[in-house]
Design a protein around this nucleic acid. Structure first.
Lengths: 369, 369
DNA sequence: CTAAGGCTTGACATCGTTGTCATGAGACGA
DNA sequence: TCGTCTCATGACAACGATGTCAAGCCTTAG
């Protein structure tokens, strides 16, 4: 074990060295993963010299660089980033953790893509996980990220408090909250203007004469959903509409529950003339329900968050669009600014929303009855 | 430096031990990340005992477990997975690398989600990267994964040959190719039945009487795109249609280029009566062009790969749907089977496609002129 | 000719953890 | 009472890399 034998033919350099061997030739088809010591032995230099060459450090002769490079290529050597990190001064893994709603939700995908683009430019890899609005998953994902020593976190959260992150924040790990604001800790946050966006959507319907509106939204415990609901209700209040009779249907977490809720709503004796759907999957569920009821041209709809192909539907779907690319871009920018030494107070960035009129939100109210 | 001072008040256990200190008290608000040695010192036990408790190894007394657990909680200790891996026998990082077309493409998102679900069940984290059909990005992503010592790879590829992976495969790293078959190496592969799917789409149009068809597809160098094109052309040949006059427009890589190509096609003197769009973004581009030309009810369309909200459009979009969830699920299953010791020959899994008739593919041919 | 300085290079300790092994305490049967 | 066994525990080396430091060589200036 670990026995050293002289094997002058197995080196690239010109000096005689002992080569690494277990005394048994490894079969060609199951070579072990080479380490720096293997490269050093093959090149006939010390491991530190290999380290210097691999990391492009100065003060290595051209001849040595050539020998080491050749040996590394011959062995298909890949440095072990984590072993290096253990000793390296900055201790950076060049890895960040990203927790989004679900990697197959278009909003999340756009955020993810923007984060990835920023990370790629800095040679940083991205762990991506789906939250699925499950508090346990949030904690597990964060824990999994931290055990892998990510340099920073970009998190969409669902649990009641993120106070469990306080020790990590004290250690200086950058954490940026996206889409939803944290509770119990202060850290950089990037969110859409949910309150104002919902108000804009609601005003849009009110201005077209609608008085019987309905709200369909996500889980009530999500602060983002609460803000959208409040924006909706506040605006009704400003318009002097009694919110007592306004249907506010919450806890719709996927297309199917939203569709069923919308169908039930449309079958009431006194259905609304306009619907505000406060999340992209909810909007899609409502679209299905309207279509099934043949009411897509009769009942107005404004959705919060854009929906794929919304412009190709008939009528086009009017939405208050978020800007997930921008959210992701800014979140990544915050993480990297912190890693670059920015020690200022927590920054809260509000990304504006944009009303996109496509038809469904411009349907006038029908007469009652 | 590294000086040890006795600090009997800073421990949870009952034995006197030297605590870790630099001789200077760290400020409360910038505590360094605790290691096992810190936990051991606080608990008044040896590091190996902490290791045993953290890893749930047997033969530790209940009292010791309690002390160590308390100390770990007090310090908010998180074990460093990579440091452990360095020494651990199996050397697994419990991490895999996933390379998809783009994390914001719905097909990729669905694959990603399925892989994540399988990985989560095993406590494995997923690095996700976007290929963007860029050969350089493929190599960089793979290299970034390997430097981080992922246990396995699930790859969508674009470069001409994946022979560069041969040494890694010899080392036993599981590699599964998804969506596109590799060249130059043999390894597990999970793909849709592109040839047959395209043939089904084409037959569907032929059976409805179309003779003037057109093909709009992705980059010609992508083998998957080649297979779809061949499926289309072969089927025309079988039907006795001269393929010389059939428009075959390739290298459409995003919605906008596809839209422009389709618009140009529709403005020809002799436009097709039916279109086969061979990729999801191309289908969306074609849908825009048809809509802009007011021809969505006049020209038949069958797309390869499903499109979000395809069922809500008018007409609904007929597609040959792939099954990205299944592709992702099987790919993950292959990786984990290999990690569990499956040393059998490379497996090629073909996931069937499914024709979904929604209206656009059932439009009959218009009379010429 | 010699001292000083710069350039190359490698030995060694170290990062945070786990595998190996030895040690000591207590239980148990003869 | 005494070995023998099991259990609980910690010292130490090792994993693959990098930081530190000293040594050797070669220039160059005095």
């Amino acid at each position: 074990m670990g026995m050293c034998i002289v094997n002058p033919t197995s080196q690239i350099g010109d000096r005689k060295v002992t080569s690494l061997s277990d005394g048994v030739a490894a079969p060609e088809n199951a070579r072990a993963r080479p380490t720096m010591r293997h490269v050093a032995a093959l090149a006939g230099v010390g491991v530190k010299t290999v380290s210097r060459v691999i990391n492009g450090e100065p003060n290595v002769s051209a001849a040595t660089i050539a020998k080491v490079t050749a040996a590394a290529r011959t062995l298909d050597y890949q440095p072990d980033l984590h072993a290096g990190n253990l000793r390296r001064a900055d201790g950076r893994t060049r890895t960040i953790g990203l927790l989004v709603g679900s990697v197959d939700n278009p909003f999340s995908g756009a955020v993810h893509r923007a984060v990835e683009d920023a990370a790629l430019a800095r040679g940083v890899a991205v762990f991506a996980s789906s939250l699925d609005d499950d508090p346990a998953r949030e904690q597990e994902a964060v824990s999994a990220f931290l055990r892998r020593r990510v340099d920073g976190l970009i998190l969409t959260t669902i649990s009641e408090s993120q106070a469990y992150l306080a020790p990590e924040l004290r250690r200086g790990t950058p954490v940026v909250f996206v889409d939803r604001e944290p509770a119990g800790v202060a850290s950089d946050t990037v969110v859409s203007d949910n309150l104002e966006g919902a108000a804009v959507a609601t005003r849009h319907l009110l201005e077209r004469g609608h008085r019987r509106l309905a709200y369909l939204g996500d889980r009530a415990e999500i602060r983002t959903a609460q803000a959208r609901r409040r924006g909706f209700l506040d605006e009704l209040g400003l318009a002097g509409i009694a919110t007592r009779d306004i249907p506010v249907i919450e806890n719709l977490h996927d297309i199917e529950t939203a569709r069923l809720a919308a169908l039930a709503l449309l079958e009431r004796d006194d259905p609304p003339t306009a619907i505000f759907s406060a999340q992209n999957l909810v909007t899609i569920g409502v679209l299905h329900a309207l279509r099934e009821s043949g009411l897509q041209h009769a009942i107005a709809l404004v959705g919060f968050d854009d929906v794929p192909l919304a412009d190709l539907l008939e009528p086009g779907v009017t939405v208050v669009a978020q800007n997930p690319q921008e959210i992701g871009r800014i979140a990544a920018e915050r993480v990297f600014a912190r890693l670059d030494g920015d020690a200022g107070p927590a920054v809260r960035t509000v990304v504006p929303t944009r009303l996109i009129e496509r038809g469904s939100g411009e349907i006038p109210p029908r007469e009652r009855g």
